[in-house]
């Protein structure tokens, strides 16, 4: 127990980094997801194809592989971004691909009749999309999007493999030094705590939005 407390300050470094990269990555996810989903449903054909390839490729390959390819592929092409932001970018694009698909499903689940009714009333297509369809789709997609967002905190564990000091990375360093498995138990509890907090926050968010449903 004493040992578990003694390593807490070092674990804290990892916790901060995990939280930092998480928020950096999650901010663009919702706008991107919504934009891409609209593009997939209502965009011109070439755009739709492009977005299809995007979601297909980013959902179909492991995150670690994406991180490696961005890390070493971009410099080869002459693009240099700091590792931390590169990792955040990969996370954002990865999660956005999932959220795009969730949003697309939600948009397409809205009854065609609503478009037709709006058309009959003389409402232009894009107004229908933004004022009528999207608000509904948003509410439908919210629960799945939230669970995606919660999953993301655990996915950040992968950055430990590209030497960024997140919780998992710090855990390995402590384990390698002290050779005491307690540190893994501690990391386990920290993640559980983090996800529980996120679940709580997102549940409130969901309640808030569904309250306006009536």
């Amino acid at each position: 127990m004493e040992y578990a407390i003694s390593i807490l300050p070092q674990m804290w470094v990892g916790v901060l980094n995990t939280i930092k990269i998480y928020f950096l990555a999650i901010l663009p996810v919702l706008p991107l997801g919504v934009l891409f989903a609209i593009g997939k449903v209502a965009g011109p054909k070439p755009l739709r194809w492009l977005l299809n390839i995007y979601t297909w490729a980013w959902r179909g390959t492991p995150l670690l592989l994406q991180l490696m390819i961005v890390k070493f592929g971009l410099p080869v092409l002459g693009i240099n971004i700091p590792e931390f932001y590169g990792a955040a970018l990969v996370f954002a694009l990865n999660t956005s691909a999932y959220v795009t698909e969730i949003m697309r499903g939600a948009i397409q689940s809205i009854d065609r009749g609503q478009y037709e009714a709006a058309k009959a009333l003389g409402i232009p297509y894009w107004t229908t999309m933004f004022r009528i369809v999207l608000p509904q789709a948003f509410r439908i997609a919210l629960p799945s999007a939230c669970s995606e967002a919660i999953n993301m905190i655990k996915d950040t564990a992968i950055i430990s493999l590209i030497s960024l000091q997140d919780i998992t990375n710090v855990t390995t360093q402590i384990f390698v030094r002290d050779k005491n498995l307690i540190v893994y138990v501690e990391a386990f509890c920290i993640y559980l705590l983090l996800t529980s907090v996120l679940v709580f926050i997102f549940n409130r968010l969901e309640k808030r939005f569904s309250r306006h449903e009536q």
Binding site: S6, Q10, V13, Q165, V170, Q173, I174, R177
Partner: peptide, 11 residues
């Protein structure tokens, strides 16, 4: 990779 390069208690 102790003892060549690793993190101490102060990170």
């Amino acid at each position: 990779f102790p003892p060549m390069g690793f993190r101490d208690e102060n990170n």
